[in-house]
Simulated assay, not measured.
Amino acid sequence: MDQLLLFFVSLIANLFSAFSGGGAGLLQLPVLIFLGLPFGVALATHKVASVALGIGATVRHLRESTLERRFAFFILAAGLPGVVIGASVILHVPGRMAEVALGCLTLGLGLYSGSRKQLGQDHQPSHRDRAGMVAGGAGLFFLGMLNGSLTSGTGLFVTLWLVRWFGLDYKRAVAYTLILVGMFWNGTGALALGVLGSIQWGWLPALLAGSLIGGYAGAHLAIRHGNRWIKRSFEIISVLVGIKLIIG
């Protein structure tokens, strides 16, 4: 029964995450803790499972050929060092205060996006000069630290940063987030947490299956329904994640 519960929780959480550009930890991480895992073990196990979300979404998004290779490498180079630093710090730091602060910021993301009706509806690349890329890379480095240390909602930050700073539409931003953050950032974080802590390997088959199927299905829905639906989903998930982090 635990394995079946893990599969369905993972499927639902990752389907919505793949559609909106983040937020799988809203449901998946609390369930792992509820079933008896300590926070550090639950976080590492969730990170490993989230890699399958990235793989499932990648399989679907690569068929659309909308990603720029050089920009994708830039996101990886800027964010991965932050992921490693964040993962190495979180196991030694009480997380409650950080979760409340992150919750307030995540809630703000949803409200900000909702107040700007045209945000992310058109692809208008911006800040691609040297100064803009340096500032954008610094933002991605900071978001990488958040991703390595706190799992709920950090993908939402990356999605909105790509929309607001670099001028991507929501559809492209979600694709970058799911592929690069879901697969590579989370994979690096899982490796760091696995080395420094431990992973509940016996629970991973159900979680991986749900993440893989949910990631593919969510990416398919995002591609079919376009920017307006993705924007609305992003805002709803951001508000829910923010409230969940604040109330604990």
Rank of each mutant, 00 (worst) to 15 (best):
K117Q: 12
L160T: 06
F74Q: 04
T45K: 01
L76Y: 06
R224Y: 11
T151I: 11
A13M: 02
I246G: 05
I33L: 12
P38V: 08
T66V: 12
G242V: 11
F73P: 02
A52H: 02
T154C: 09
W201N: 00
G40A: 10
A138G: 15
L180R: 03
G218P: 01
L140S: 01
R128A: 12
F166N: 05
S20Q: 06
T154N: 13
G54P: 01
A52Y: 04
T58G: 10
F19K: 02
F142W: 14
D129S: 08
G215L: 11
A52L: 10
T188V: 13
Q200G: 07
M133T: 08
V59K: 08
T106S: 07
G215P: 00
G197P: 00
L140K: 01
T154W: 02
L207W: 07
L4T: 13
L140D: 01
G214H: 09
L43G: 01
K244S: 14
A222S: 15
M1Q: 08
Q200D: 14
F184W: 07
A206V: 02
A209Q: 01
L204G: 02
A42K: 14
S50T: 15
D129I: 09
N14R: 10
K117R: 15
I179Q: 09
G136T: 04
A209T: 06
